[in-house]
Computed example of a mutant assay.
Amino acid sequence: MNSAADIVFDEATKTYPGSVRPALDALSLTVPAGEICVLLGSSGCGKTTALTLVNRLTELTGGDIRIDGTSIREQDVIALRRGIGYVIQQAGLFPHLTIAQNIATVPQVLGWPKPRIEDRVRELLELVGLPHGEYGDRYPAQLSGGQQQRVGIARALAADPPIMLMDEPFGALDPVTREHMQDEFLRLHAQVRKTTLFVSHDIDEAVRMGDRIAVLAEGGKLLQYDTPERILHAPADDYVARFVGTDRGLKALTLRRLSDLTLEPYAGGANGTALRADDSLRTALSALLAAGADRLPVTDADGHPVGTVTVDLIREAA
């Protein structure tokens, strides 16, 4: 499997023809190999421009971008793009091809032997939770929006690229499906560890998805590049603080899991639906409030009780 690659933006600048101000203004940051960097900001701040500069769908007008030390300017554009997976908001699947054929597209272009392609398609469909026997021969129109996005991610991973570019990939999904897809991608990323640039305008999504967050302002100015914890607890300026929101203490609960706490012993008989040890403190607090309870049981992945969480425990952790 291809190893992940680091990405370095070195005063990367883009000014579109006819515009007097840059869409992206001297962006400098490093995305370490294997991490997810969320490009966060409102419309018109240069997030998608930064993303498409990496695979040269948009060309730089100043500065540079290096992948594992090599400038993208020095690379053949076709070869560059073959080493980068690209996922957009609408999955962009070929409607006349089956799911298996969609995923096989890039390996076929690369001339992989047929048995290798078939093995890779089966592997990826299993990885994204769409078994080949059930879904391989279906067409995109026969899948839900969330399933199509899974196929889009599988197709982007098909040639095992070291880099993934994701442009608001879950933005068109309903809230429940969106949260599920976020969880699925994080599960997948834990296995494949691709260096990922992820565009979002949603601070909750950024905190949930990112190892690091780059907050951009209108005109493509980088205001802060930091971990989610630092963005929430130490915003660089008033703009970042306003963008993050006054409830950033509540958002910070997303970053910790019930498994991080020393839970009270499980005594049985707790009211309400059990929580899982890998649930976030924010999820737990929401469940406690919804149940009108001061405590709820917590189970492991197999449903076995591991303890009890209380409102006081979450308050102390916060």
Rank of each mutant, 00 (worst) to 15 (best):
Y135A: 02
I36K: 00
T48H: 06
E118F: 06
D279W: 12
A293N: 09
I153S: 07
R187I: 11
R282K: 14
P265R: 08
L157H: 03
L27H: 05
A293C: 13
T58H: 15
T299C: 14
D25L: 10
G219A: 05
R257P: 01
V298A: 04
A301D: 13
C45G: 02
E168H: 04
L39Y: 05
L223C: 12
L253H: 04
I99A: 11
A291T: 10
F243E: 05
N102C: 13
L313I: 10
R21I: 13
L80N: 02
C37E: 10
Y225T: 04
Q108V: 10
F243D: 00
T246V: 14
P131S: 09
L27N: 01
Q147K: 02
D64M: 01
E134H: 10
A214R: 04
L197I: 13
T13G: 05
Q224T: 00
G18Y: 08
A291Y: 02
E123V: 12
S3K: 14
T196K: 01
E134S: 13
F198S: 07
D238W: 12
R56M: 07
W112Y: 09
R155K: 09
D211K: 00
V192T: 11
P169M: 05
S280I: 09
D76H: 14
G129R: 03
D204T: 13
L216H: 03
A301H: 08
R56N: 12
R178S: 12
Y135H: 11
R230I: 12
Q90G: 14
I84L: 06
A290Q: 13
D237G: 03
T254I: 15
A104T: 02
P95H: 05
L222G: 03
D137H: 15
L222H: 04
L143A: 09
A141V: 14
L110F: 07
R82L: 12
A317I: 07
K14N: 11
L281N: 00
Q147W: 01
E118L: 08
D6R: 13
Q191K: 14
R21C: 03
I72T: 12
A156M: 06
L110P: 03
I65P: 07
H189F: 08
E264R: 15
L93C: 07
